[in-house]
């Protein structure tokens, strides 16, 4: 068996070595292993996240909406509950800017060559005004601010409740888990509308009711995720290792396991936020949510919906904001889930 190998042709080295190069290299320390991969975990996650076009679009949309929600209401001098009116110089009567379509003087001049000849000739209402004469631009961004605030606050509290519940339930297992899971099932089986109905009988309608309703229902999803993560992680060898070192239950839950659940939990938050925004919108829409003169995206849609046949422009901005918010958070959630997915760099 001695066939000639032809493919292993020696390649000529570019460098021509000298005799001195053939001494032993004594500078190499072979007893210490200095190898490691240079990339950190979160760096990889970020890079994978930003490689996803959808996730980046989602992030940009969320960013724009948040910025507008913060500065939008201050971009003009109108308050969100101020009814815009002027005194007509000719008749001396108070004229209210009721139900005006989008009203932009420079744009009007540009397209028609003439100035407005109404009493608000110099005023800009980019989205128009509502039937009470309030500036819709201000109200939409103010409403977005309220909606986002409600969503963030409730989801944050829900995360804490749901995570603690799920982690504890999953960790201890057995009877504790069984009891806690039956409780979850019961809580989960009550329709949200029933909860809202019951709440509305002894609570004043408004922002607090919306928050309480969200708190009562949204933690369940979180707790399920947290429990599933716990069940997955608690049998891992690194948890056993902590046990053999004598770590107590609380140390294992909150120091060893909790940091490992952050990824899926954040992802779940990204999916919960649009649900919360939508629920808030829905509750406001059916009239148990935000009360006038305050507004949220939902109550604005309700207003617009009431006038949809006569004044269709009123419903467009709040609906677009709602739609973009929901879409964008879902994009970001998806992107995060992909980026966090455990993977071996494919080689």
């Amino acid at each position: 068996m001695s066939k000639e190998r032809t493919s292993a042709v020696p390649a000529a080295p570019a460098y021509v070595p000298t005799d001195a190069d053939f001494a032993f290299d004594t500078t190499i320390d072979i007893t210490t292993d200095r190898n490691y991969a240079s990339q950190g975990f979160w760096k990889g996650v970020f890079m994978r996240f930003f490689k996803s076009v959808r996730a980046v679009i989602g992030l940009v949309i969320i960013g724009i909406i948040i910025i507008l929600a913060l500065i939008g209401p201050h971009m003009n001098s109108y308050g969100y509950s101020d009814i815009q009116s002027v005194t007509d110089p000719e008749t001396g009567k108070e004229v209210t800017a009721r139900s005006m379509p989008p009203h932009v003087p420079w744009l009007h001049k540009l397209t028609t060559g003439e100035s407005y000849d109404d009493p608000f000739a110099e005023e800009t209402f980019l989205f128009g005004t509502d039937s009470m004469g309030r500036d819709l631009w201000t109200r939409v961004w103010y409403g977005a601010r309220v909606s986002l605030l409600i969503a963030f606050v409730t989801i944050f509290i829900d995360m804490i409740i749901g995570m603690s519940f799920g982690l504890i339930s999953g960790f201890f297992g057995g009877v504790a888990d069984a009891v806690m899971q039956r409780f979850v099932e019961v809580a989960n089986s009550i329709p949200r509308l029933v909860i809202v109905g019951v709440l509305a009988t002894f609570m004043p309608k408004g922002i607090v009711l919306v928050i309480v309703a969200l708190l009562l229902t949204e933690w369940i999803g979180m707790s399920k995720i947290a429990r599933a993560e716990m069940l997955k992680i608690k049998g891992q060898e690194y948890i056993m290792a902590s046990r053999t070192l004598g770590a107590g239950n609380w140390r294992i839950i909150f120091i060893d396991i909790l940091p490992n659940t952050i990824g899926p939990i954040i992802t779940q938050m990204m999916f919960s936020i649009p649900t919360a925004i939508f629920t808030e919108a829905f509750l406001s829409f059916v009239g148990v949510g935000i009360m006038l003169p305050q507004c949220s995206v939902g109550s604005l849609i309700e207003d617009g919906f009431n006038n949809i046949t006569t004044l269709p422009y009123q419903i467009v901005p709040p609906i677009l904001v709602l739609a973009f918010l929901m879409l964008a958070f879902n994009f970001v959630g998806d992107g995060l889930r992909e980026a966090l997915a455990p993977r071996i760099e494919d080689m």
Binding site: F41, Q236, E237, Y238, M240, A241, S242, T244, L245, D256, P259, N260, I262
Partner: peptide
């Protein structure tokens, strides 16, 4: 008494 585990991928906490 201490233990060395089987799976080098699973026996170290990835977040530590």
């Amino acid at each position: 008494m201490q233990m060395i585990f089987q799976d080098p991928m699973a026996s170290l906490n990835p977040r530590k």
